[in-house]
Simulated assay, not measured.
Amino acid sequence: MEFAPNYELTPLLMLGSRAVIDDLHRHMATLGYDDVRPAHGFAFQRLAPYGATGNELAEFLDITKQAASEMIDYLEKRGYVTRQPNPADKRGKIVTLTERGWGCIRETEAYLTRLEAQWAEIIGPQRMQELRTDLRQLITMANGGTLPHKFRPVW
């Protein structure tokens, strides 16, 4: 697939992101995490380390409260999260990761760490750091001067 040179970077970033996520999920399935979908990984980012309410998760993922509730139900039935009383709101619940949820995060972190180390072997550690710095700067600029606080999956 070829792209016009004046906007090649955008589709390459999207293709790269999708390739990494797909490969990560194939790997995670071999470890027994075959019921986790890409959107769940984004949710885990918000739930770690202290948990979140369903409303906070919906806001972070930029989805409806109903969709967040359905996701929480799905993850709870599979042992990744649990609902606990919210100390700040006796009527509400805080969703926190279980040991299985934390195990999924640790395996994901290990996989992504190995992947980035492989990339650094290919382009060199200095260029890898420059890539991180440049992407952070571009994303910050595109978001009005701050890194985004939402982490919505696009598929």
Rank of each mutant, 00 (worst) to 15 (best):
T113D: 10
T113F: 11
R114L: 11
L115G: 02
L115K: 10
E116K: 14
E116S: 15
A117G: 09
Q118S: 12
W119H: 07
W119K: 05
W119V: 15
A120E: 15
A120P: 03
A120C: 14
I122C: 00
I123D: 05
G124Q: 15
P125N: 14
P125Y: 08
P125A: 14
P125V: 15
Q126S: 13
Q126V: 15
R127L: 15
R127P: 06
M128T: 04
M128V: 03
M128L: 15
M128Q: 15
Q129S: 11
E130Y: 12
R132P: 00
T133Y: 00
D134C: 03
L135D: 02
L135W: 01
R136K: 07
R136T: 06
R136M: 06
Q137E: 09
Q137V: 03
Q137M: 08
L138W: 02
I139L: 09
I139W: 07
I139K: 01
T140Y: 00
T140W: 00
T140H: 00
T140D: 00
T140P: 02
T140F: 00
M141G: 00
A142N: 07
A142K: 04
A142R: 05
N143D: 06
G144R: 11
G144N: 10
G145D: 05
G145M: 05
T146K: 00
L147N: 02
L147T: 02
P148E: 08
P148G: 06
P148Q: 08
K150T: 14
F151M: 11
F151R: 15
R152F: 04
R152K: 14
P153A: 15
P153Q: 12
